[in-house]
Simulated scan of single mutants.
Amino acid sequence: MVSLQWCGCADDSVKAVNNYQKAKTLWITVGLLAIFFVAEWSVGLWSQSLSLQADAGHILSDITALAISLLASFLAQQPAKKKATFGHQRIEVLAALLNGLGLLAIATFIILEAIQRWQHPAAILGIPMLAIAVLGLIVNLLNITLLHPHTHDDLNLRGALLHVIADTVSSIGVIIAALVVHLWDWWWADVAISIVVATFTGLSALPLVQESLKIFLEYAPESIDPVEVEISLKSFPGVVQVEKLHIWAISLDKVMLCANLTVECTTIQERDRLLNKLKTHIHKTFNIAEITLQLTSSQKPSALQIHPLFNQDLVFMLSTRKTN
């Protein structure tokens, strides 16, 4: 029986720089949103605009979500120790899940408020509503520019970006509503835009919640088909059977694989060569960095030329570490 564990990790210095840039971006975003929240909430109360008040509530949730993201990013950088053998990377996934659930809650709240406003309409000041909505659009576009480059491999920051995108759409909707209210005094436009914004907010949150739950439930990533992985392993000469194949994600960019393989090898050297071929093939084909394979020979111990002084249940551990 042979076990292989191979761990591929990014260079620590590169990770440190990336983490610093992410944290800096989040702090700038939080600062801009906090300043805008005070302005939008104040103008929303003054102008009697439901869409402005709803968007201000959304901004407040964004500030909370980004604060959670900052905390999660800090904790995720802490090294694996004691009982946290995988580290704290899933804290970022938890933060993303909370962000998604928060978006769904906000969408529900806005729709309920819109229904009440429809039943009890109020006079709305269109010009102040328009001015603050334009300012909100500028702030949100700036935040999207800051966040987008860091979201490709970070589910947590992707959740924060979704919040800001939802705010951007909300700002556009409020601008349209403000123009309609000012030009034609159609107060119902404010309510209608609020419902549209709430619907978009809820729909944008569903993929984030779904992807986060899949990681927590330890599903295989969408990009990797376990059946294809099994067929690929069986295609190697010497591999007789593949059992207990498990593929799961610790975080969005960290996928793990483990499996038990029955192999036909006549020598220890042949087994070692097969292990190296398997690990290289899995990494290059499926982009899985952390691999644990347990190989059990179908041959008798004597056929593998094991020295008689060793126990027939000898386990040979080979660990290699891939340097990115």
Score class of each variant (00 low, 15 high):
residue 177 A to T: 05
residue 119 Q to V: 04
residue 41 W to L: 14
residue 20 Y to A: 14
residue 233 L to P: 06
residue 314 L to Y: 11
residue 315 V to H: 15
residue 95 A to Y: 05
residue 17 V to E: 14
residue 4 L to A: 11
residue 298 S to F: 08
residue 174 V to C: 04
residue 152 H to P: 01
residue 31 G to D: 07
residue 154 D to T: 04
residue 28 I to S: 04
residue 256 M to F: 15
residue 9 C to G: 08
residue 172 I to L: 14
residue 14 V to W: 07
residue 217 L to G: 03
residue 290 E to L: 03
residue 150 H to A: 08
residue 112 L to N: 11
residue 122 A to S: 12
residue 277 K to S: 13
residue 180 V to G: 05
residue 146 L to A: 06
residue 296 T to Y: 15
residue 232 S to A: 13
residue 226 P to F: 00
residue 164 V to P: 00
residue 184 W to A: 12
residue 100 G to M: 00
residue 202 G to P: 03
residue 274 L to A: 11
residue 109 F to A: 09
residue 91 I to S: 03
residue 269 Q to G: 10
residue 31 G to C: 13
residue 87 G to E: 05
residue 33 L to G: 03
residue 13 S to Q: 12
residue 70 L to D: 09
residue 255 V to H: 10
residue 28 I to R: 02
residue 267 T to E: 10
residue 44 G to V: 01
residue 239 V to N: 07
residue 109 F to W: 15
residue 91 I to G: 01
residue 22 K to N: 05
residue 247 I to D: 02
residue 236 F to M: 10
residue 225 D to M: 04
residue 319 S to V: 04
residue 56 A to M: 02
residue 67 A to K: 06
residue 230 E to M: 13
residue 262 T to C: 10
residue 153 D to A: 14
residue 162 L to V: 14
residue 105 A to I: 07
residue 19 N to C: 04
residue 275 L to E: 15
residue 316 F to P: 00
residue 313 D to Q: 15
residue 225 D to R: 07
residue 232 S to E: 12
residue 176 I to L: 14
residue 221 P to R: 06
residue 314 L to K: 07
residue 226 P to Y: 01
residue 176 I to E: 00
residue 282 I to W: 02
residue 168 T to G: 12
residue 232 S to W: 05
residue 195 I to D: 08
residue 157 L to P: 01
residue 10 A to V: 08
residue 97 L to E: 03
residue 207 P to F: 08
residue 54 A to E: 02
residue 196 V to P: 00
residue 222 E to I: 09
residue 140 N to F: 01
residue 303 A to G: 15
residue 161 L to A: 04
residue 13 S to N: 10
residue 324 N to R: 12
residue 119 Q to Y: 05
residue 77 Q to V: 02
residue 65 A to G: 15
residue 42 S to K: 00
residue 285 T to V: 11
residue 318 L to M: 11
residue 306 I to F: 07
residue 238 G to F: 09
residue 106 I to G: 00
residue 70 L to S: 11
residue 250 I to V: 15
residue 321 R to V: 12
residue 205 A to S: 09
residue 45 L to T: 08
residue 9 C to R: 15
residue 301 P to H: 02
residue 251 S to Y: 03
residue 148 H to T: 10
residue 99 N to W: 04
residue 267 T to N: 06
residue 147 L to Y: 06
residue 158 R to F: 09
residue 197 V to H: 03
residue 249 A to I: 01
residue 273 R to Y: 09
residue 96 A to Q: 02
residue 183 L to Q: 12
residue 241 Q to I: 01
residue 58 H to M: 07
residue 103 L to R: 00
residue 311 N to V: 08
residue 117 R to P: 00
residue 312 Q to G: 08
residue 323 T to D: 11
residue 94 L to M: 13
residue 190 D to L: 00
residue 197 V to A: 04
residue 51 S to Y: 00
residue 1 M to F: 13
residue 324 N to Q: 13
residue 60 L to A: 12
residue 238 G to D: 07
residue 120 H to E: 08
residue 25 T to F: 07
residue 256 M to Q: 13
residue 127 I to K: 07
residue 229 V to A: 04
residue 52 L to R: 00
